[in-house]
Design a binder for these strands. Sequence first.
DNA 1: TTGACACATGCCGATGTCGGAATATTATGG
DNA 2: CCATAATATTCCGACATCGGCATGTGTCAA
Lengths: 122, 122
Amino acid sequence: MPMSEYYGAVARSSTTSDVFNAVAEARRREILDTLIAGEKAVGTIVNDLSMSQPQVSKHLRVLSEVGLVRCKAEGRRRLYRLEPEHLRPLHDWLAKYEQAWNDRLDRMDDYLKELQQQGEPQ
Amino acid sequence: MPMSEYYGAVARSSTTSDVFNAVAEARRREILDTLIAGEKAVGTIVNDLSMSQPQVSKHLRVLSEVGLVRCKAEGRRRLYRLEPEHLRPLHDWLAKYEQAWNDRLDRMDDYLKELQQQGEPQ
DNA sequence: TTGACACATGCCGATGTCGGAATATTATGG
DNA sequence: CCATAATATTCCGACATCGGCATGTGTCAA
């Protein structure tokens, strides 16, 4: 016994084109992690991480679209290099919360100090 | 002229249940942001962010599943509070890269120092 | 108990995204 | 120019997720 005829549906916000989403995928994080050691060719990444070559290429594409990696052609291979500065949005966003969570620790600290003072009155 | 009959398809890794994905969604970040000020009831969030109530509830569910928020029942409303410590995985992961990017600055620094030394030999 | 709030859940359509396979592209060596 | 190595791109099926709507659940007040 339906109350109306049709259920709703709405276009979605697109995405995958911000740093947060780029980094949300575990495979892409693996790729970034392996690039910390220094720039690597696609084939090297494929070997090191045991991923398929197209998969690696596609992930690299996403990563480069958000600026997290840069590509340098060397002969017939392409060397990808990390561009860590572009993690900045993430870093900045996180910073707000580290503040909030340090405040907690501080309050905990104050509380402990109060306890101490009560332990040794005068 | 196809070479084979069927194209491949494969089950996906599931997900949405790690902090990275939880935080990847802009709306969820908005919710977290608004909770920095302190704990809030669902309805308050709905008002402050002009989102639909079910939407907020669903996002809060995801957030609480990864431990980023905690719920405390107060009468017939539910107060959600931030749990910033659970951002730790993100923070730790990021730390590796800040290292990498500081190294860059350091190398730049070393380079500048070398230039200076060459400028004043012996 | 009843009714109304406050919130959670279930269902649905649209769309995004991932991985696999095949194919296109580009550069290199002979 | 040709064959081949190294990458990129396209096409596809299977999910997963998001948002809207409708409804379920629990709590308070009279």
